[in-house]
């Protein structure tokens, strides 16, 4: 890459980001209700995916606990924002959802983040189902409720809250990646043993990162619940939300900060379109897309575009 292209890109990126942000903030003014709702669910997936990458992408620990943290956030809303009368304002509940999730993450992380490889993935996967089962048991035996209703919140409020969380999680990721803490995370992902022997407190770094990522997942769940309006343990702790962020991250590519966002946006858009156009076969086609992505796009769409670009530009840099 030569110098002019580099500086051009440097000034291009913040400009582009500003344009996108302005377009998003003003969306409820010029966009239709459908667009606002669509972008809200894109942002929801983007939040989960970016938070997932924040922890798993850098440390190399594949967490499947996303649905657990997301679900804890959803239940925070179900408990504190019932239709019979909200206990707290929406934003406070969003905060509660995030904090509750990160507390659980601190506990779970301290216990399990010494499990290596597939064990950590298995543990977090079982954790989601366990929390769901405990939720079902609690609702059936203790509170005698099948599900709970959450108050209706204005679509624009949901949208702006989701956008707010998105901006926060992006900024957090951006600053962590550039910080000393981010260097520690990457070192752990590269070689945990070596990282510990150069003075990095690997357990602490992993647990804190896990909790930060869980915070955003919980907050996202809390505001998402107001869109769902009806919540039960099956809805809240759906394992789908553990796997989607992983697939979206792979789809977009994890090499840089915007890959996961692009992956989430494309995937969520695809999901919404399939759901409205072909409701009968949308889930099946979705499954096929998932498998195809893993088979043919191991480096994500961005990787594919880069590959194509190299081929178009004569493959001069293909071997470096």
């Amino acid at each position: 890459m030569n110098i002019t292209a580099f500086t051009f890109k440097k000034s291009l990126v913040p400009g582009l980001l500003l344009v996108i942000l302005v377009a998003l903030v003003t969306l409820p003014i010029y966009g239709s209700l459908y667009n606002v709702i669509l972008v809200t669910s894109i942002l929801m997936y983007a939040n989960l995916t970016v938070s997932w990458v924040l922890f798993s992408g850098s440390t190399g620990y594949m967490s499947l606990a996303t649905a657990a943290f997301f679900g804890i956030g959803i239940y925070a809303s179900a408990l504190f924002l019932p239709t019979t009368g909200a206990v707290f304002p929406v934003l406070v509940v969003v905060l509660i959802g995030g904090l509750a999730s990160s507390l659980v993450a601190l506990g779970v992380g301290a216990l399990t983040l010494r499990l290596r490889g597939i064990y950590f993935a298995i543990f977090t996967f079982v954790l989601v189902v366990l929390i769901m089962e405990l939720g079902i048991w609690w609702e059936l035996s203790v509170s005698h409720l099948l599900g709970r209703y959450v108050i209706l919140v204005d679509n624009n409020v949901i949208f702006y809250t989701m956008l707010g969380i998105f901006v926060l999680v992006m900024l957090t990721t951006f600053f962590i990646r550039r910080s000393k803490f981010g260097l520690a995370m990457r070192s752990i992902g590269e070689n945990e043993e070596a990282a510990s022997h150069i003075g990095i407190n690997v357990t602490m770094v992993k647990v804190i990162t896990f909790a930060i990522s869980a915070f955003f997942m919980g907050a996202t769940g809390a505001i998402w619940a107001t869109k769902l309006t009806y919540v039960d343990p099956h809805v809240a702790f759906n394992v789908l939300f553990s796997f989607m962020p992983v697939l979206m991250a792979i789809f977009g590519g994890m090499g840089n900060i915007y890959g996961p966002v692009i992956g989430a946006a494309l995937f969520a858009y695809l999901q919404e379109t399939l759901q409205t156009e072909f409701p009968e076969i949308y889930m099946i086609s979705f499954g096929f897309i998932l498998v195809a992505v893993i088979l043919y796009l191991p480096n994500g769409v961005l990787g594919l575009i880069q590959k194509l670009w190299k081929r178009i530009s004569g493959g001069k840099r293909a071997h470096t």
Binding site: L183, A184, R186, E190
Partner: peptide, 28 residues
């Protein structure tokens, strides 16, 4: 007390400088 490893355990996907920087950031 610092050490090296029998089979090298470098941070392979990070630039050389970043490898060493991690050491100077978190060492003594």
């Amino acid at each position: 007390i610092a050490r090296t490893f029998q089979t090298v355990k470098i941070f392979a996907n990070m630039p050389v400088l970043q490898n060493v920087l991690a050491g100077s950031f978190f060492g003594t």
